[in-house]
Design a binder for these strands. Structure first.
Lengths: 254, 254
DNA sequence: GAATGTCGTTCGAAATACCGAACACTCCGG
DNA sequence: CCGGAGTGTTCGGTATTTCGAACGACATTC
């Protein structure tokens, strides 16, 4: 796939650092990433010039993400039917079950949430949306991984390397992951109990686009206190309907 | 401000190209930006590797914005109190007047919308948000420009160079802009009639943060058919209240 | 107030990323 | 079936960028 451009890689590393820390100074970036001091100066200077970073008002040597970043993100969201339609359908499903609903896509071995609806806060737009989580710890992630070919899975989760965990119950080994995915493929629904969060369970269903490819997954998250075998079945049904509805809006014909 | 890093500049140029065109191939990017063919290959390869671009499914040589872009934008939105609170207050104001409400910030000589509420479509989240318009053509833009120091204005709009227009009524010359801004400073409210759009008028008020700096502006847009001297006064009052409410949420004390 | 450490900024030699040339492949029209 | 245009891919010399060293500004400590 050609060679990669180191300067761009570094610039993106810097930008992505601001996904974890709100404000950073140049020495801090230097310490975190290990790039030469002067190079960090030049890179940050360039990013500021293009307003992907901005000095925080009153402290000209500390930086934050700038509107440039927002502009790009919004352009993506506007293009993607998925974010528009996903938001609408998520809100419907959230209203029907009174629980939190997410829509997410796969990026490498992590999931990125692109839409969210919470029954009690109907317009909770920019909260967790955009956040990244390890795919193998979430129901949406498992659903999306189940749709991949085996050789792609081997690339992402090579046998032998064990996986980062979010809770005690998170899937720990590639072998475990594979047997789990097999079961999910059989059922067409992914379920997860306290694997991404101590107190939350989750059901997810696959979303397909015009071409029939699985491009996203939709999930319902429930605090364990409201979770039961019976409820799980109802919610699975509901999220499956939601996923079909969203697929249809994306041009998929059943 | 140090030197800038050409490779990063080019990478950003490429990304921003996707703000105008939804899908692009490498030859198209080459034609648009004039960078050497092989360089475009390397840059795009790098951006794809980091998932700021993705090949469109089925057409491995055409590209779209990827989730990486979205991730960054969402991180910005999440950090900025302005986007969160702005969305909430905009919705309130929209409900009160039954018109479209925007919140925008200044980036160079353009404005970027960071929140929007439309009375008829309460959750219209990712529509025009993130879009960029020339500041001197919009009410929000004029309001924000009015808050700048004169020397900054001289940099952005040097005397003699005339300005791009969106409609026949758009401000055309720097001189005109300056007299207009003086009037806006006097009143504390910006008004605009068919200067950004043939059929729309607009009132805007300034939003300040904790430190008292003007960081954004809020506007109400009205189709000219519903516009009148009397209504303008009412809406100006309303948007001023909204702006104060938002300022307060950002920690500004009156 | 001298001494020490941190950090922003400048500058030029050394390293390396960039880009042109050449090749390979696909798609068309003849 | 052939030829040409358009595009993806490879590779190496050289123009460019990178990064260390040096300096100055500022803060902090003794």
């Amino acid at each position: 796939m050609g060679r990669s451009v180191p300067a761009v890689m570094r610039a993106l590393d810097i930008l992505e650092l601001f996904g974890t820390k709100e404000e950073l100074s140049i020495p801090e970036i230097h310490a975190q990433l290990g790039f030469p001091r002067t190079s960090v100066h030049e890179l940050v200077g360039t990013l500021v010039e293009r307003s992907y970073l901005t000095p925080v008002p009153g402290q000209p040597h500390r930086f934050r993400l700038g509107v440039g970043a927002f502009h790009l993100g919004a352009a993506y969201a506007e293009r993607m039917d998925l974010t528009r339609e996903g938001q609408t359908v998520a809100a419907e499903v959230a209203a029907a079950c009174d629980e939190t609903v997410h829509v997410a896509v796969l990026d490498g071995s992590s999931v990125v949430y692109v839409a969210k609806a919470d029954s009690t806060h109907p317009v909770r737009m920019v909260s967790a949306v955009g956040r990244r989580l390890p795919a193998h710890c979430t129901a949406v992630g498992l659903m999306l991984l189940a749709a991949l070919e085996d050789n792609r899975l081997d690339e992402l989760f090579p046998i032998g390397r064990n996986l980062p965990a979010l809770t005690e119950r998170s899937i720990a080994s590639p072998e475990q992951l594979r047997t789990r995915l097999a079961r999910i493929r059989g059922r067409g629904i992914a379920e997860e109990f306290c694997e991404s969060n101590e107190a939350v369970a989750c059901v997810a269903a696959p979303v397909a686009d015009r071409s029939g490819r699985i491009v996203a997954a939709m999930s319902i998250s429930v605090p364990t206190m409201r979770w039961s075998r019976k409820r799980a079945g109802e919610l699975a049904e509901l999220v499956a309907q939601g996923a079909v509805s969203l697929s249809t809006r994306l041009g998929h014909r059943g």
